[in-house]
Design a protein around this nucleic acid. Structure first.
Lengths: 356, 356
DNA sequence: CAAAGTTGCACAATCGATGGTGCAAAGGGA
DNA sequence: TCCCTTTGCACCATCGATTGTGCAACTTTG
């Protein structure tokens, strides 16, 4: 007869009901009862009582006592982005698989916000933190280190902490190769037809730029010394601005685009919104990120999809192994040809929603 | 001289260092010190000590004692979706504005997972929960009610809890009107050219269907009794399947699409991936969701963008007001014309990331 | 100058769970 | 029967904060 008094049952309630002591109840409920030589009989009695009373542990109390919370954090710059939202999705799945509770937070690439946010997470005694796409990795690292918080970088340089990164260089090479090949079907290309937009001085961008250049050089059989990289940071607005300037200078867009991330791609969308459809009719785009809608735009879009699932698997392994010194693991991303819509998490579920 | 021993400082440490009692320290640090008649002098001493020692409160301990955690939850079906990810973004902002910490979790429209996930949140003593896009609202409500957890539904029917919903009916009417008008520019339309895909028996879908029909009837000046609604649930796969069937039956797609959500829109993408570009060359789409990439597809796409920002503002107000009986607030969504890329959260930030 | 009021703080219980330790009762061997 | 193990559990301190209460030391009042 479960008590419906909205106050939650505690081990003390069960202790009274069962006649056992609170510590016995605790041991039974957290599974350590064999070690504590509690009889199976007592255990069963308490377990069924717990079920009847709908007992669930107060995780704040447990966390306080055992100085671990069962919470894992993931710091992303924004949610509104296919890459980071699919990372959050994979993160949640991996965390729950391990009996941990995910807390996803965003730092908006603002170093100040990043620190504050991580400090809040630490105040909740999170057990570990994954760091993706922050403006100031070292700042966040300091905060973590100061709190002795295990942390792993995702797609960030790993000087101070272990990290799991996409093979940005190779991915960029493959992606560049793909758009070159596609664009070459239409007409002869010259090096200045192939331009990279986006990125900054961060590790991922630099690697991608290197891969981009490697592929160009291989294709054109020479050092392409043209100015073919427009760093715009991770901002749609800046990307749009730079595209406008390019367009004004050259009277047209480049034939071949390498776009550093879907965030920069949104800058191209804004440009498109201000111009005629003709303006982009002949471009070929490679974007280092995957977005299903982006894949079907009115021009060919090749995309690179980092394997977030595997990145997080490896990330959790790194946490568990707790290597003595920072370790860097590289995960191969995947080239997605134009007009491709991949399956997602909602494909796995049953169709029947329970109507009320 | 801040101690760098990675263990975090507690009020007891500060108590020893300052010569004051722990309760005094606590009062100073949580701001209740005036009420407790602590002298300004003592307060200042403790505050500066706290800064020097980089003290931050242990929120698990505080939460345990005061039986509130400062955590607010948001339950969404998936992250990988522009609507829900922008909802998460707005949610985080609103929560932090109120000094609360956001916890976003996904239930994958699986009633079982939804319950479990919410139960975990409750085990962490979250203070409130927002519920969006769940398969079984009543099940989640029960769990919340059993724990006396204040909760607000977002875009769900509000029989049992307060809810904030988009004006689905009106939005659908406007959206349908827009695509009808656009499509009519090309050729004469008949009722069977205009079909709705997606949705189910949930409140939002039913309202949208009603709005869709209202707009059609108004346009055609008659009761359109044709079969013009294909319920596919919130699944890309099912949507694709139904589209294939439609295509096979009719030899072509309908000219005018009303798509119930971007999740269903992904079903159309998959269809596109399996067919020629011609197949969709003449369609006009209205989608009840906004996605910037979706807005630039090779056919006109009108979109409805629910005002998540305002929905969450109102949602938090509802929580604070704690009305005695469930209240429903309706928020007007916004029609987004084709080829529109709206600004997002990353536009507000400074461009300069701190390189290491 | 004594009574009454104020100021400034310390004490101790408490939130719910955990885990080290101690101890009675049962079982077993000589 | 006596002693030694083993079994089965209770006791209690503890995690870090919050908060009701008590009480010196001052200050004010008459």
């Amino acid at each position: 007869m479960a008590d419906v008094s909205s106050k939650k049952a505690t081990i003390y309630d069960l202790s009274v009901l069962s006649g056992a002591s609170a510590s016995t109840v605790s041991a039974v409920l957290n599974g350590s009862w064999r070690k504590r030589r509690i009889s199976e009989e007592t255990a069963n009695k308490i377990l069924s009582l717990a079920k009847a009373e709908r007992y669930t542990a107060n995780l704040q109390a447990r966390g306080l006592r055992s100085s671990k919370s069962g919470l894992v954090g993931l710091l992303v710059p924004v949610y509104e982005n296919r890459f980071f939202s699919s990372m959050a999705q994979a993160f949640e799945a991996e965390a729950r698989k391990r009996g941990l509770s995910p807390m996803v937070v965003s730092g908006r690439r603002d170093p100040e916000a990043e620190r504050r946010t991580v400090e809040t997470l630490i105040a909740y005694s999170i057990d570990a933190l994954f760091i993706a796409g922050v403006a100031n990795p070292d700042g966040v690292h300091q905060v973590c280190a100061g709190a002795a918080l295990p942390h792993v970088n995702l797609d960030l340089p790993g000087k101070l902490a272990s990290s799991v990164i996409s093979d940005n260089r190779r991915g960029a090479e493959v992606l560049t190769g793909a758009i070159l090949q596609h664009a070459a079907r239409g007409a002869n290309l010259s090096p200045e037809d192939v331009v990279l937009f986006g990125g900054h001085d961060d590790h991922a961008s630099l690697e991608r730029i290197a891969g981009f250049h490697a592929a160009k050089n291989a294709y054109f059989g020479q050092e392409c010394s043209v100015e073919d990289v427009e760093k715009t940071g991770y901002s749609p607005r800046m990307t749009e601005l730079v595209l406008e300037q390019f367009f004004e200078r050259n009277g047209q867009l480049p034939r071949c685009f390498f776009i550093n991330s879907s965030i920069n791609f949104e800058g191209l969308l804004r440009f498109m919104g201000r111009h005629d459809e003709e303006t982009v009719a002949n471009i070929v785009v490679g974007c280092f990120d995957y977005d299903p809608f982006g894949s079907f735009l009115p021009f060919p879009v090749y995309m690179i999809k980092p394997d977030v699932q595997k990145m997080l698997e490896v990330g959790f392994e790194l946490l568990e192994a707790a290597p003595t010194e920072p370790l860097v693991t590289i995960i191969e991303p995947r080239l997605i040809p134009p007009r491709t819509a991949l399956a997602g998490p909602l494909d796995d579920i049953s169709e029947l929603s329970v109507s009320s």
